[in-house]
Design a protein around this nucleic acid. Structure first.
Lengths: 85, 85, 85, 85
DNA sequence: CACTGGAAAATGCCGC
DNA sequence: GCGGCATTTTCCAGTG
């Protein structure tokens, strides 16, 4: 009665996840290919990875800055006063 | 200057990697959505993850087994027939 | 033969790890206390955490930049030439 | 403005947190050193980690048991005498 | 009080 | 085969 027909649902969820993860794995392969190609062109993989990493950090940082700005503004909009007392 | 034109290549490599990683991130989001949906249907996310994990392990083991089988067959002078499913 | 007396060593290693992790846990408690105190002084914990996070990100970024600089310098010191042949 | 002098407090809080987290990071390094040393002595890091984990679980269980015991004793009207410390 | 989001830990993977 | 790295997983505080 209660949950039997949901077994099909469970199976569907699992398959969807597995398909998505297969896609992810394929893309990871592509990334590896790009690095291999870059190395084949004489570039140092390590450096490329580091550049990618730094650029990602930059993006994160920007996001964090905006997040804290939002926090500040919310804070100021709410209390607009000194925290203590 | 010898290799200036390769700068364009470097940039291209970096962008390709970044695009691929963006795709990966998007798919990861999709996976999260599926889990959220499953949870909304009353399933325990943790259990589904375990099932997915186990099935992946099984797949890995299968592949290993097949690889070993291929090795044996090659050893015996028999070419492993078309592996595909 | 060889490894019997090392049991004592194993025990010693485990205890060292456990002691260190106990210290870490204690410090985590201290951190929590500081946040509690700050909140008691009217500060928003969330904001403080975010500031700490951003400052840590800044530090990381600096480190990454230096790391890549080192990489570049090593690269240039080694080959000092265009990447592609 | 009312609360300007609290900026110093905020700064102090932040620095205290950062110092504590630096200590934590240092201790984490120490833990890594211990594991490296253990590996250098021929031990398998993974196994040691498992042992540490199990012992921690045991400790947790013990605490739970003691907590339950305390509950029972409180229920019975007996104050759980200070076990130690 | 269950859920979300984030920090810390653990696992697995990749390149050397 | 090992160390480093990325991803995953787990734990916990905060929140509605």
């Amino acid at each position: 009665m209660s949950g039997n027909k949901t077994n099909g649902h469970l199976r569907a969820f699992i398959e969807r996840v597995e398909n998505l993860e297969a896609e992810k794995a394929a893309i990871s392969e592509d990334v590896k290919s790009v690095y291999a190609e870059a190395k084949g062109s004489g570039y140092d993989t390590k450096i490329i990875k580091m550049i990618v990493k730094i650029r990602k950090q930059d993006a994160n940082e920007r996001q964090e800055q905006e997040a804290i700005l939002d926090l500040y503004m919310a804070e100021l909009g709410m209390v607009a006063a000194s925290p203590e007392d």
